[in-house]
């Protein structure tokens, strides 16, 4: 009975994407306009761009930028969030900084970075990092605040050495918060990297979409978007979900 239900739900999940493509195909056929290409035309364009143009190179550039910004914002955000969660005084002192960081429009940060640092790779990655870090810091601050004081006391009572305490007691408690930050962070970074590339860069998915936009080439825009989405979805299924199962599997017990 239970197995049947699982089988059915996985079939439904598997049917989700084909259904989307089918709806798209039908709408494109109904519209019958050059600005609304069918999925088939878009896939053909992806193949063309990947084999004869710059799609793979652009994807590599964008993913590299996203990865660097992700690592930087996670590292800095975890450190800041940890400090804010531990020290009330620091939290009070910097709470309005965090609030500003969370609410400042991403585009303002990007423009400011480009004006101050020029249209450089560093400026782009810094702008993305500045946008993302407050979100990580806030999540990690909550994680540190939620640490189980009973387990801390247990480790103290048994004189568990510092490194062992970190590895077995602290890190596993923080992992759900790290993964939440990583997931929300990635979804944010994917989006803002593209916007910042449109604003100013020498290549990448966003840059290319900006060029296609100027030419009103919707097939090219969708081809790049779809290729990028494929990478994001693959990352979700082949990296994030297995990692989550591995790290948080105990929660199902």
């Amino acid at each position: 009975m239970g197995k049947q239900r699982v089988d059915r739900s996985s079939w439904i999940e598997a049917a989700s994407l084909p259904l989307l493509l089918l709806v798209w195909q039908l709408l494109a056929m109904l519209a019958d306009h050059r600005l609304f290409p069918t999925p088939f035309e878009v896939f053909r364009e992806i193949w063309h761009l990947a084999t004869e143009r710059y799609l793979l190179e652009d994807l590599g550039k964008t993913l590299g930028r996203a990865a660097l910004a992700f690592v930087a914002s996670m590292t800095i955000g975890i450190a800041i969030g940890g400090a804010l969660g531990r020290a009330r005084t620091l939290d009070r002192l910097f709470s309005s900084w965090i609030l500003i960081g969370l609410n400042i429009p991403a585009i303002v940060v990007a423009i400011a970075c480009y004006i101050w640092l020029g249209l450089s790779e560093f400026a782009l990655i810094l702008a993305v990092t500045i946008n993302k870090t407050p979100l990580v810091a806030v999540t990690m601050r909550e994680g540190v605040r939620a640490l189980d004081t009973g387990l801390t006391e247990l480790a103290q009572a048994y004189r568990v050495p510092f490194l062992r305490r970190m590895r077995l007691f602290l890190v596993p408690q923080l992992m759900p918060f790290v993964l939440t930050s990583a997931r929300t962070g990635l979804s944010l970074i994917w989006k803002i990297v593209l916007v910042f590339e449109v604003l100013g860069s020498d290549g990448g998915v966003g840059f290319r979409i900006g060029v296609y936009f100027q030419n009103f080439d919707i097939t090219g825009i969708l081809a790049y978007t779809l290729a990028f989405m494929a990478v994001v979805i693959a990352f979700e299924y082949f990296v994030m979900r297995p990692l989550e199962r591995r790290v948080l599997g105990w929660r199902q017990a």
Partner: peptide, 22 residues
């Protein structure tokens, strides 16, 4: 030290919980 509540590490098995403190 046996606390009022068992205070086991929920992500570790029973034997691993023992070895966590020892």
């Amino acid at each position: 030290f046996v606390f009022q509540d068992p205070r086991l590490l929920p992500w570790l098995g029973a034997a691993a919980n023992i070895r966590a403190v020892s």
